[in-house]
Amino acid sequence: MVKQRDLRNASGRGYLSKLARDIRMDFLLYVMLLPGIIYFVVFKYAPMYGIIIGFSDYNIVSGFSDMPWVGFGIFEDLFTKAAFQRAFINNIKISFLKILWGFPMPIILSILINEVKNLFYKKFVQTTVILPHFISWFVIYGMLYALCNLSTGAIPEILKSINAAFGTDIEVVNYLAQKETFMTVLILSYLWQSSGYGTIVYLAAITGIDQQLYEAAMIDGAGKMRQLWHITLPSLRSTIITLLIFRVGSIMNAGFDQIFALSNSLVISIADIIDTYVYRIGMEEAKFSLATAAGLFKSLIGLVLVLGTNWIAKKVDPDSGIM
């Protein structure tokens, strides 16, 4: 500390000389920072420059050097494509359903888990509900296949025996290959995979609530429901708002990993989202300009949504928000 102050007093007063001196003093810190900065510039910012492909007529042979600028022509073309419109609508629809069912689930689960008094049992439940988060969507697809396939799957067999036993007539179908049922499979598998993981944050927040609040409420005669409504939920408020911002802000991410692993050509009309659309026309049909435009459209909406929801959250509660 002493050394630093002496150095500061000794050298000149101009901004540039101060800057030069500060950089010299922390030179090694800048050296240390360099690889990370290079990484972000090369792998994150350089692709942002690549966005110009979305405004140009790119072809793979001539590359970047010779591509005619077409302005918003690609976008006009994109917006008239039925497949893109479909992907956009599916994207919003799937995300909306996921938020609707998936957002409250961890909150409800944490409140229930917190009610368990036996510590061993509590630990057991926590351990099992988080487990599905750690496996890939292809593994989940493998499990769903094992449960749903018509020849040896678990669920069709159960339904068949129910039909046989009670004389009912439940239709036995492959849920993974039916338009009518695929959305349910998508949402349920999403809930299965992510609900438990979401409880980590909420349980930590619930543990942080002052127990004396509950004791005081009990002395005043508040039952479980009133404690929940007047203590637990208000204490979770800023956590809930912050996570909801993240969630709504990422509405354009409808879950590429999941849909790419689970969907197939039979259900494409309801499962195709912007990300899978970009992958298909970009990587399989090599229409780079169109795919880039679709991706950019998605990213821009995402950016506006994050900034917008963050702004709203700050209005509602100045302590919340991500920025």
Partner: peptide
Amino acid sequence: LFGGGTIPTYLL
């Protein structure tokens, strides 16, 4: 908050 997207990253 924002990224170039799949295709520009692939080309990079």
